[in-house]
């Protein structure tokens, strides 16, 4: 069996959140630069230019890209040969606390949705666990901003509404979000599963690399079609018109009930901060 020290988890989570808040993923930066070339609206071009400039300032001067350093979302892919003799989720929350305090990130979490009292350290994080073969631990983190999250939606369609129904719902969501979700967006779409699974699929979709391909042909086709249609909506950068409403559409699907067609749309703003790292477990000498 293998393990990873609690201290390593805490330090890694802390560093990942700080890094993600200050340094935008290079692939996303290239995608923004490409969009700037193709954008036909002058104001839109100008906004894209400032977004690119902003990430450079953030990187060079160590200032968070955006003041909303979000809710702390963590996906863990845990190798089955790993064992933890401590509370992994608690260690992650300690890492989040350190990251948000040491990294001068904004604490945006309240204790109860109705009493609205700030927890002062951005905990608790939202942690998802998954198992994979081997002795590795893959950690994905994203400080997910409230603006685009608030514009995300879920609908239980009737199966007969089919692909057209899915497309309509996605387009309507992007249109309704307008400038509020800070476009250009990465649009995460989850179809199938059930109520909560579709939302999770959509969230996982925005965690995908901006230049990857969907797992199957149906989803790949849908991604292409949706991107085309979304960029014809004339929402544009910050909702002020233009051809760059989305940089990418990511569709994740899952089998579902004969009577259901759940669809969830999770919007990711242009400040699409995320990082991942792979830790390798250390062998435990079992002396018992």
């Amino acid at each position: 069996m293998y393990t990873i020290k609690r201290k390593t988890i805490i330090e890694t989570i802390k560093d990942l959140f700080i890094d993600s808040a200050y340094n935008l993923d290079e692939k996303l930066v290239s995608s923004l630069k490409k969009a700037k070339q193709s954008e036909t609206n002058n104001l839109g071009k100008n906004i894209l230019d400032r977004i690119i400039d902003n990430q450079e300032i953030a990187r060079n001067d160590d200032i968070p890209l955006c003041q909303d350093t979000g809710v702390s979302v963590v996906f863990l892919e845990i190798g089955r040969e790993l064992i933890f003799d401590y509370d992994l989720e608690e260690a992650i929350n300690v890492g989040v606390r350190r990251g948000y305090i040491d990294g001068f990130l904004r604490k945006s979490i309240v204790k109860h949705p109705l009493n609205r009292i700030n927890t002062l350290d951005n905990t608790p994080a939202i942690v998802h666990f998954n198992f994979i073969p081997g002795n590795k631990l893959i950690i994905h983190v994203a400080p997910k901003g409230g603006g685009s999250e608030n514009m995300s939606r879920l609908k239980m369609l009737s199966p007969s509404e089919g692909e057209a129904g899915v497309i309509d719902f996605v387009l309507d969501t992007v249109k309704k979000a307008g400038g509020k979700a800070c476009p250009p967006l990465i649009v995460g779409v989850g179809i199938g599963g059930n109520f909560e699974k579709s939302a999770l699929l959509a969230k996982q979709a925005i965690f995908r690399s901006i230049d990857d391909n969907a797992k199957n042909e149906v989803d790949q086709k849908l991604e292409k079609l949706l991107l085309e249609k979304i960029n014809k909506l004339n929402v544009g950068p910050m909702g002020l018109g233009g051809t760059t409403t989305a940089l990418a559409v990511k569709v994740n699907s899952f089998p579902c009930h004969i009577a259901s067609l759940p669809v969830a749309v999770n919007l990711q703003c242009h400040s699409a901060r995320k990082k991942e790292v792979t830790l390798i477990g250390k062998k435990i000498n079992n002396t018992n």
């Binding site: 400032r50 902003n54 300032i57 968070p64 890209l65 603006g147 509020k180 800070c182 910050m238």
Partner: peptide, 29 residues
């Protein structure tokens, strides 16, 4: 950032106010 309600726009007219947009997500700049 972002649009406002009809009621807000009515109040803007009444009070000769103005609503200005800053670009979202340019925190560092």
């Amino acid at each position: 950032k972002g649009p406002r309600s009809e009621e807000f726009i009515d109040a803007v007219k009444e009070n000769k106010a103005v609503y200005l947009l800053a670009i979202g997500g340019l925190g560092a700049k």
